[in-house]
Simulated scan of single mutants.
Amino acid sequence: MRPFNPAKATTEELVDYFAELGLLQEQAEIMSNQSKINRVVRRRFEVVKELKSRDGDALRLLIRYYDHQCAQVRLNAATATLALFPEAARRKIQEIAEWEAGPVALEASMRLHALDEGIFHPV
């Protein structure tokens, strides 16, 4: 993972880095590298936090990844934007749960369950 300072990055750099992190997460999942997954997810949370703090809630720019070729990027984008686009984000998560395979499908199914049970609250 390359060095990256979210606070010094432009909004576009943050949005691009968000997708890069999803790709890294997918690779780490394939390799069953839990420590790398944890690092990538923590970094993604930092990027999301920084995007939320930007003028106009720059987090909404992540909607561009709803149709990304990588299912992990799609899932991460839908999860990050659930509070902004609840219906569209939930549909995307449902689609991933139903049509993808492997860890990302399981993660999407668990996310839906957590939403339905009130365990996960989008912010």
Rank of each mutant, 00 (worst) to 15 (best):
E20I: 12
L59Y: 07
E98H: 14
E117D: 03
A101G: 07
L115Q: 02
I37H: 11
A105L: 04
G118C: 01
L62P: 10
Q69S: 14
L23C: 08
A71V: 03
P6W: 15
A105W: 05
P122A: 02
A9S: 09
Q69L: 11
M110Y: 11
H113T: 11
E95H: 15
I119V: 05
F18H: 08
E98Q: 15
E100S: 13
L75Q: 01
E13H: 02
Y66K: 01
L23W: 10
M110C: 05
Q27N: 12
N76S: 07
E12W: 02
T11A: 05
G22H: 13
Q72A: 01
K52A: 07
R43P: 03
S32M: 15
F4D: 01
M31K: 14
S35N: 14
A71Q: 02
Q72K: 05
R54P: 05
A114W: 06
S35M: 10
K8Q: 15
G56Q: 01
M110Q: 03
V48C: 05
L23Y: 09
A58S: 15
R60E: 08
T79G: 05
G102P: 12
Q25D: 07
L61R: 01
A58E: 15
H113L: 08
T81Q: 10
A101M: 12
T10E: 11
Q69N: 12
K52C: 09
L23K: 14
A97G: 12
A9R: 06
L115T: 02
A28M: 03
R44P: 00
Q94L: 11
R90T: 15
N5K: 09
T81D: 04
K52G: 07
A83E: 13
N76D: 14
T11Y: 05
L59I: 09
R43E: 13
L106E: 09
V40T: 13
L59D: 00
S32W: 11
G56R: 02
R42K: 14
I119C: 03
V15K: 04
F85W: 14
K49F: 14
S32L: 13
C70E: 05
R44S: 09
Q25A: 10
K52Y: 12
R44N: 13
V15H: 03
A108D: 02
D57S: 10
K8N: 10
E20R: 12
D116Y: 06
E98D: 13
P6T: 05
Q72H: 06
K36V: 14
A19Q: 07
V104D: 04
A105C: 06
F18W: 07
H68P: 00
E100N: 13
I63E: 03
E46K: 15
P6H: 12
L14M: 07
P6S: 14
D16K: 14
Y66F: 01
E117H: 09
I119G: 00
V104T: 11
M110A: 04
K36F: 08
G118V: 00
